[in-house]
Design a protein around this nucleic acid. Structure first.
Lengths: 238, 238
DNA sequence: TGACACGAAATTGTATACAATATTGCTTGA
DNA sequence: TCAAGCAATATTGTATACAATTTCGTGTCA
């Protein structure tokens, strides 16, 4: 297909990076494993070059560590950084929610309806409904993925590539920490998403930020009680 | 030099990425410029491969945008994200400072003195003295670089690679926003570094976090008054 | 004149080949 | 038996060659 600048062609080798990252997160490639370019190249049926770039990306994301000429190994799961990551995420997502609300307000006051905004907004609508369906059908195993997609979509709604990149990085680390366990907080956690979205739609930055802050904090509490023990002390929500 | 696993060999092609990023930050490569692999390869006297990896890294950092087969261009300076970046940085660095203080406390109570900790701690001592010297000699043009190095060193002292990576990303964006202007807040801002370091050394996490939060907030105020106008409203420091 | 199609040039994506380095295992000596 | 040195191997770093795709200029037709 030539002369087509509409479909962005979903980033060829990027997919390999996603696959390897998923293998790391799911524990197929445990911490400390050696990952050689040749082996991965053979596994995915391609040359070393795309694999190499994927490994470089994963190194920047903190999933592998590399030394020149000495190869790469899967990094250690950052368990001792969990609390701090949640703390930063709480602040980050709060800022993102506020920003999304401000942009939503500008969206409705300004005359022109931004095309990209509506696209993302509709995507979120779909995610929310899928989550409700999953809750209704008691298929809670679908929620973690939908949960991440919701939060990243909100970031996209904020139209801040910088903040979006930061959230992606943190969210993936937290996904790794949860590892295979995960079950989120289930129904209750999911229901909060609707309230956040409503606050953003209303252009209420203060409320959106507050709700998101609380939402993420509860997620943190859930994580801490599961992995640190129930009574683990956490800083009060700001 | 063979059989030497002491000197980590400072990351060959990584240096190219640093050089290109600096060109972008300093405006040598303005936003929207096309950056082609061939041109950069010729400029730095190497093959396309290292340059390509550097560009991929810069794309992940948000300094360039690429489309498959369509090349890369320097991204837009994220001016409208400045406030939000500062807000996140305030929280992030506060967490880092708290963490550094906790680790410092553990350092002194535990018997074994961690080698890496002392190395970083001494590096910070050097940075602080260099900054004092620059202030005394009224060479304030040296402060911005020393300032970034101080904050990144504190992050290293926290022994959290995840948080360190996040700070590096944010700090570089803010460096880009300041562009060539910069002068930091000069003497007063620099003096605060000593107090932060003292709080960390004392293992006082609450104080370290508080001081760092205030410090970054003041930096934010300085930025806002310079670029948004003096009276620009900012959220109160948490 | 303007729009559209087509093709040449430029650029990126991938594969392969070679150079540089680290790792591993063996040999040697005390 | 163990440590140290050396060579063989494996792996990464880089260069070059080719394929795939986009972009830009040119010509044609209405």
């Amino acid at each position: 297909m030539q002369h087509s600048h509409d479909n962005p062609e979903p980033a060829l080798n990027q997919s390999v990076q996603d696959e390897i990252r998923q293998d790391i997160i799911l524990g197929v490639l445990p911490s400390g494993s050696r990952v050689t370019e040749s082996a991965l190249a053979k596994k995915y049926g391609m040359s070393r070059v795309p694999v190499r770039e994927a490994l470089r990306g994963l190194e920047m994301e903190g999933f592998v560590v590399s030394r020149p000429y000495a190869g790469s190994t899967v990094a250690a799961i950052p368990v001792d950084e969990a609390d701090d990551l949640f703390a930063v995420r709480e602040s980050l997502e709060s800022v993102i929610a506020r920003r999304s609300a401000r942009r939503a307000a500008a969206q409705f006051t300004a005359g022109q309806p931004d095309d990209g905004w509506w696209k993302t907004r509709k995507e979120i609508a779909g995610i929310l409904q899928s989550g409700d369906a999953a809750v209704a059908a008691d298929e809670q195993e679908l929620l973690p993925d939908l949960n991440i997609r919701f939060h990243l979509a909100i970031a996209e709604l904020s139209a801040s590539t910088s903040l979006g990149a930061l959230l992606r990085q943190i969210a993936r680390k937290i996904e790794w920490l949860y590892a295979t366990d995960v079950s989120s907080r289930g129904k209750h956690s999911w229901a909060e998403h609707w309230a956040i979205m409503a606050a953003i739609d209303a252009g209420n930055a203060d409320l959106a930020g507050e709700l998101m802050c609380s939402h993420v904090h509860q997620s943190w509490v859930g994580y801490a009680s599961r992995f640190h023990g129930v009574g683990a002390e956490l800083p009060a929500r700001k």
